[in-house]
């Protein structure tokens, strides 16, 4: 046994030294490598999970706003429709009113013109009657004059 140990150079002090070496490597790697790397991976995973949740929330919010916008748009459209309908209606009634007014005025103008025309005509007749009377008197005067002369 002793021979075997010495052939392989086994020395309990070296054994312990190498064990301590490995222990040091283990502790150092634990502290400098495994812990930070695993922590970084965990942190990234957490961030990704958070990101996914946030994305889902954002999507939901977006869908919500979409429907809200649609609702508003619809409301605005119906409102616009009623406004246009109102406007059309009032335009129609205004048009009718203007038409009636215009007709009335036209009728008044026509009546006025007729009245004036008939007045002119009657005056003309009166004047011609007077002229005729005067002419007939003159003619009678002339005839009488010729008879008596």
């Amino acid at each position: 046994m002793q021979q075997l140990l010495s052939a392989f150079g086994i020395d309990w002090r070296l054994l312990i030294a190498q064990a301590v070496n490995f222990a040091l490597v283990l502790v150092a790697l634990w502290y400098f490598l495994y812990k930070p790397v695993l922590a970084m991976m965990a942190r990234r995973q957490e961030l990704i999970a958070k990101g996914v949740v946030a994305a889902q929330e954002a999507e939901e919010k977006l869908a919500h706003t979409d429907t809200a916008v649609m609702e508003r748009l619809q409301a605005a459209e119906t409102e616009a429709d009623t406004i246009v309908a109102h406007a059309r209606e009032s335009a129609q009634s205004e048009k009718a009113r203007l038409l009636k007014e215009a007709e009335a005025r036209a009728a008044a103008v026509a009546a006025d013109a007729e009245a004036r025309a008939s007045e002119v005509a009657s005056r003309a007749r009166r004047e011609s009657e007077r002229d005729i009377a005067r002419l007939s008197i003159l003619a009678a005067e002339k005839i009488l004059k010729e008879k008596y002369d």
Binding site: G9, I10, L14, L15, I16, A17, Q18, F22, A23
Partner: peptide, 12 residues
Amino acid sequence: TDLNFTLALAMI
């Protein structure tokens, strides 16, 4: 290539 090292690791 030194049995001291491999034996130490084996013991751990």
